[in-house]
Amino acid sequence: MEDKLNDDIGEAKRLQLWEMMLKLRLVEKKAYDLFLQNLIKGTSHLALGQEAIAGAFGVALQEGDYTFCTYRGHAHTLARGSSIEGVLGELMGRQCGLMKGKGGSMHLTDVEKGVMGSYAIIGAHLTIANGTALASKYNKTKEVSVCFFGDGTTNIGAFHEALNMAKIWDLPIVFVCENNLYMEYTAISEVTAVEHPAADRASAYSLDKIIVDGNDADEMYRTAQTAIKKARDGHGPSLIEAKTYRHSGHSRADPGKYRPDEEVKDWMENKDPIKNYRQKLLEFNIDEKTITGIESKIQQQVEEATNISKNSPIPDIKEIYTDVWADGGYKWHN
């Protein structure tokens, strides 16, 4: 084993990061295939190309920590250890889905794994993530809350309200802006007063300016670890801006034609986090058989989970009337 592999990350963690990112990539690809087969309805927002961010946090976080993500949240949910059939089944509206089809692609939730929900209204979940962080402080426990969001979120009021509150109360929280350069169909630079939509706002809330290459899994992992430790040690919130790029459009309906071909090509060919990490593992003299072994293992897991999901029954229509209230029902008058 070469020296450079025995650094702060090490081989075992790197293979964990590799396996994690690969899982996120292959499940998203499968989700896309299932859409084309019309087995998934509604909409979907794929995180293809952004796997290093959710993946690194997934490896760095502990059991019991809370995560909040957006409607582009399949990857973040899987990264906490939620089952692949739980995610794909939910997208397909099957009983094996995490919420038995009651939430869908944009609302993946798995409380047992600390996945406190995926939020489809921009900005809201930053304020809610403060709440789980506040609970940890109130209860004097050590969980850390992590909240992922996109660059577009930095222009909505809730972002600013949440950062201010997190800072004044020194909450154990990490805010992670995944800057993929486009809010939806519009370049974030065209609609934002500053160059770095999250990092340039950090000073307004007495937070450090942190910008990281969100497609470099090692750097992402180091940044995640530092911020998580800071929060866990009681030193308050962090705001991280991770530069990345989504390989596909904003949603299922969007071919992403507003992006220059050269730009897309550059990110796909030269800055793909998975392609580059594979190369890095080889440069670290990690046995290619180990790498491909993990690839086959994940491929098999995704195929198995897809079959489980396809064979899972559709929900009973009685589910419509369940779980509005904590008593399990929906009655509002006697």
């Binding site: 709440g131 789980t132 506040l134 809730a158």
Partner: peptide, 11 residues
């Protein structure tokens, strides 16, 4: 939001 998140944990 803070009240909701705290309530989600049982407070």
């Amino acid at each position: 939001g803070a009240a909701m998140g705290a309530a989600m944990t049982g407070l």
